[in-house]
Design a protein around this nucleic acid. Structure first.
Length: 715
DNA sequence: GTACATACAGTTTTT
DNA sequence: CTGTATGTAC
């Protein structure tokens, strides 16, 4: 008898879920039921007795994905999923390092820096070393360090042939020393340390390799080289690795994702056949056909074609706007129309390539009274006031944390400036002690001394108050004694910051509740002081992108941030050369292909309706830029598209639209011109003697041609 | 030590 | 055009 949880799976999904012992690569197209396959696979392993919960490790990229997997799995199986390790790469490595901090060479109470903390730490380092920050900008040093770590390299092993790189390697080494001194670990360090721990400690490696008989990986195309090596170590005991990914949806090469892992995985784990999930349950036919046609222009794909049992659905609307404002107005109007038809605003998204594009859209939406929320703003734990509060807490938890002290020593302002701080830093360096220790050592000279002594008393008072307090009360004490609450209460314009601080107390309370009773491996293991655990949690999970606005609101998002989401209707704006594909991508090798994949991701977010738009004029950096339609538009089959919008000579832009089929010429068609050579039609307008087509001749430029005079021929 | 002014750069982003 | 970072005046 077929177990209930297998019911309704298509043959490929079933094959994936019930794949025999050994490793498997699942090529999972957009909307093909990937998460369902992953969770059902785990349920299957447990139900058939192939593996106990404790033998399963499932790893994702985002906390959101990990949480969703755990939730869906728990709904699917009555078995306690407690013994399972489900989490992000960083979350699981963190857990590993907490469990074996001494073996990993870390202090028991090490703290985690997020990217911003790391950058601040590097700036501080460069300052103390007196490094020329024009030649060695902190951001570049950070990038150098992180990409080295993500390739598995330490300062001693990076290529130091060039003097410039040798200096960078020195800075890398100095940075790592600073981190060690302060008990801090950055994000890539979590992975690298965990990798080194398993490499060097054979007993631990054998233990975990024997324990995890089944390793499941989500979004495998997004893994970097170090993450893949980490997986190989964990699988070295012969685990079955179940890797799910989609090379066509790889859009994070710029931050180290290496799709080559998919090929290496097939080789390293002797994958016999790849299971392809190509049936799409999300989008209608036209949308999928457009996506397929677009992505076919990429080379070196593993190969996959989405299909659906549903009908073709509505044509894809292509709208040429005269300006970014017109484009935004068109979108606002169309959204209002759809809302009037009964499409919930929460089921509509406007996507764009870069965040700057949201401005014009927000303006138009505001004018049209369409409620919206913008994804991608600051997240809860990244807010300035929260960072300040956390810095005080970090100082309580770990007095060695110089970064935390520097952040708060004069916030709220208490008369301790750069000069006084420099004196304090001198004292600390002379005695080889942390800043907070130097603070208690001697107040120093000058008028800063009194302020420093006062600050030292404040910190001591805070520590004493927190000594025996519960976490939420510790947060309250810190907010009060630091003066943060009073500072924000004093300014009317920063009332929301005060609210956020109150919310931090709630977050701490909520954390304690989960933490004390938790079986969730995404959270730090029980046994740590709650404060340390909470701070780790805050770094590792910065919280939801706090989107302003009502629940019933249109979503504005970058194409990147929309990955994994779906909407009834999707508007894709700014389909112009230079924007999408972005001009910065044109220089990178593989850049345009990544842009194409990004558009593929964006298109496949749509279930029923898709609108593509571009603007002929766009305000960028305070200047008007003239754009031509994105090359990607000409890669979409013309028969799927319906053109719309105000165009030259059209008496009424809202009039019934001309349809492509009546003309022998259509968008996307290759044509030849006696003078301009071959090109591709990217737009049509008018009919009869006035009919004109816009042709992109590549190097020859983009031209409007009147069909009656231009001697065009199909090519 | 703080406040203001001017210069400058400005894809995409999770942990 | 906008936010950030640095430099100058109080």
């Amino acid at each position: 008898m077929t177990p209930a949880y297998l019911a309704g799976l298509n043959p490929e999904q079933l094959a994936a879920v019930t794949a025999p012992r050994g490793s498997t690569l699942i090529l999972a197209g957009a909307g093909s039921g990937k998460t369902r396959v992953l969770t059902t696979r785990i349920a299957h392993l447990i139900h058939t007795g192939q593996a106990p919960a404790r033998a399963i490790l499932a790893v994702t990229f985002t906390n959101k994905a990990a949480k969703e997997m755990a939730t869906r799995l728990q709904a699917m199986t009555p078995i306690r999923i407690g013994g399972m390790w489900i989490g992000t790469f960083h979350g699981l490595c963190h857990r590993l390092l907490r469990a074996h901090a001494p073996e990993a060479g870390l202090p028991a109470l090490f703290q985690i820096m997020d990217g911003a903390d790391q950058l601040a730490a590097i700036k501080r380092l460069l300052k103390t070393l007196g490094v020329d920050d024009a030649r060695y900008p902190a951001k570049e040093v950070q990038h150098f360090i992180n990409s080295a770590k993500e390739s598995g390299l330490r300062a001693g092993s990076v290529d130091g042939a060039q003097p410039f790189e040798r200096r960078l390697a020195e800075l890398f080494a100095a940075y790592d020393e600073q981190c060690a001194r302060e008990g801090l670990v950055d994000f890539p360090e979590l992975l690298l340390r965990a990798h080194e721990l398993l490499t060097r400690n054979e007993i631990l490696r054998a233990h975990y390799a024997a324990r995890f008989a089944h390793i499941l990986v989500d979004e495998f195309q997004d893994t970097n080289r170090l993450q893949y090596q980490w997986l190989r170590l964990l699988a070295s005991g012969g685990a079955s690795v179940f890797a799910v990914g989609d090379d066509d949806q790889s859009i994070y090469a710029f931050r180290g994702a290496y799709t080559g892992n998919m090929r290496e995985f097939q080789r390293d784990f002797s994958i016999q056949g790849v299971i392809k999930l190509e049936q799409n349950y999300r989008s209608q036919g036209n949308i999928l056909d457009a996506a397929n046609a677009l992505i076919r222009h990429n080379t070196g794909r593993l190969g996959k074609e989405l299909w659906t049992g549903r009908g073709p659905g509505a044509p894809i609307i292509v709208h040429a706007a005269s300006s970014d404002q017109d484009e935004a107005a068109f979108i606002a109007q169309a959204v209002a129309g759809l809302a009037a038809e009964g499409v919930p605003l929460s089921d509509i998204a406007v996507l764009y390539r870069s965040n700057a594009q949201s401005r014009a859209l927000e303006h138009a939406l505001f004018n049209a009274a369409v409620p919206y929320r913008v994804y991608g703003g600051l997240r809860f734990f990244e807010r300035q006031e929260i960072k300040h509060a956390l810095a005080y807490l970090r100082l309580i938890a770990n007095p060695q944390d110089d970064g935390a002290l520097e952040r708060v020593i004069n916030f709220p302002p208490r008369g301790i400036g750069a000069r006084t701080l420099a004196q304090l830093a001198d004292t600390a360096q002379q005695h080889g002690i942390a800043l907070s220790e130097a603070l208690t050592r001697g107040p120093g000279t000058g008028k800063g001394g009194a302020a420093l002594a006062q600050f030292a008393r404040t910190l001591a008072e805070m520590r004493a108050a927190c000594q025996a307090a519960m976490l939420p009360q510790q947060v309250e004490h810190v907010l009060r004694l630091s003066g943060l609450s009073a500072h924000y209460a004093a300014s009317r314009s920063e009332a929301d910051r005060l609210e956020n601080l109150a919310e931090l107390v709630n977050a701490a309370a909520a954390f304690v509740e989960e933490y004390t009773a938790t079986t969730d491996p995404a959270l730090p293991p029980v046994g740590l002081p709650p404060l340390t655990a909470f701070l780790s949690h805050a770094s590792l999970e910065a919280g939801e992108h706090q989107a302003e606005g009502a629940a019933q609101a249109l979503s504005l998002s970058t194409a990147h941030a929309a990955k994994g989401l779906e909407f009834h209707t999707v508007f894709l704006s700014g389909l112009e050369e230079g924007l999408f594909p972005h001009e910065h991508s044109l220089n990178d090798r593989g850049g345009v292909e990544e842009e194409r994949r990004l558009l593929y991701v964006a298109i496949t977010r749509a279930k029923e309706r898709l609108f593509l738009s571009y603007a002929q004029n766009r305000m960028l950096h305070g200047q008007v830029r003239y754009g031509i339609a994105s090359r990607f538009l000409s890669e979409l089959p013309g028969e799927l598209l319906a053109h719309d919008g105000p165009r030259r000579g059209a008496p009424d832009p809202r009039a019934p639209r001309e349809r492509a089929p009546s003309s022998p010429w259509h968008v996307g068609q290759n044509v030849a011109h006696p003078k301009f050579g071959t090109g591709i039609i990217i737009d049509c307008e008018g009919r009869g003697p006035d009919a004109r087509v816009q042709v992109n001749f590549g190097a020859g430029g983009v031209k409007w041609l009147v069909l009656e005079y231009a001697n065009l021929s199909p090519a």
